[in-house]
């Protein structure tokens, strides 16, 4: 964006929105929107509190555990589906159904099955992330240049070698793309899981703040979450760009 010939740094438009927020907050339209400055002050005060750090820790733990399972299960399953016709026909309809299904509706079922705790949040997170990871890994493997596969075979590659030295790397740009979208969905999964269970992590915090009308705290936590999700997604996009140089030349 350029204004009067000056190039503004990325995200500078956010300042405009923050100002707007401040103005709306000062006008005291509604208790629901406190001024932005107040939210910021609350945020700084909130960050070192035990409640916040505890929630952050619980959430981060559930999030990374969910993402971990989604990745270590999703990538091999996707690659196998891309390599095996039978497996593909067996699993693809399910993957597609779950990809577009309203998974939120499943959370109550998971609560009954796995209890009202972190375990359910982890599973919810994994369920949000895994399907797109599978689909992308599958797509990545299916576009592998056939002669790369034949090359590996002609030099006597074992199936394991072919998997780890050729298929995985050849599909890596797509796999990373899937992981990036999967991680973004996992952020939704972990928050939705916690909100529905509402006694762990940020879910419990949100529940507390909204029931006591602590709006500044509510927004502060939300800003932190949005910020974390954004940084995560940018980091993965950066990784993706690092391998994309060879995506075109495969």
């Amino acid at each position: 964006m350029t204004v009067w010939g000056y190039r503004l740094p990325a995200l500078s438009s956010l300042i405009l929105w923050a100002l707007l927020w401040e103005v709306v907050g000062r006008l005291e339209f509604t208790f629901f929107i406190p001024p932005f400055s107040e939210v910021l002050v609350t945020l700084v005060a909130l960050l070192p509190t035990k409640a916040f750090l505890g929630a952050l820790w619980t959430t981060a733990y559930a999030f990374w555990a969910g993402v971990f399972f989604a990745i270590v299960i999703g990538i091999p399953v996707g690659i196998l589906m891309g390599k095996s016709r039978i497996l593909d026909e067996l699993l693809l309809p399910w993957v597609n159904i779950f990809l577009s299904a309203p998974l939120t509706a499943l959370v109550p079922v998971l609560m009954v099955l796995f209890g009202f705790g972190t375990k359910t949040v982890i599973i919810t997170t994994a369920l949000f992330a895994i399907w797109i990871i599978i689909l992308n890994a599958r797509a990545g493997v299916r576009q592998i240049n056939r002669s790369l596969v034949e090359m590996a075979r002609s030099f006597g590659a074992s199936p394991l070698d072919a998997f780890f030295k050729v298929y995985f790397w050849a599909a890596l740009p797509e796999i990373l793309g899937g992981v990036r979208i999967g991680v973004i969905r996992a952020v939704k999964g972990v928050i939705i899981g916690q909100l529905l269970i509402s006694i762990v992590g940020f879910g419990a915090l949100f529940e507390l703040y909204s029931s006591k009308f602590l709006m500044a705290e509510f927004w502060a936590v939300l800003i932190v979450l949005f910020g974390l999700a954004f940084v995560l997604s940018e980091f993965l996009a950066y990784l993706e760009r690092k391998v994309s140089y060879y995506a075109a030349s495969r």
């Binding site: 240049n145 034949e150 002609s154 050729v166």
Partner: peptide
């Protein structure tokens, strides 16, 4: 085998 499209590992 020498492949017509080289079949090199781009990475």
């Amino acid at each position: 085998f020498v492949f017509q499209d080289f079949a090199l590992l781009p990475w």
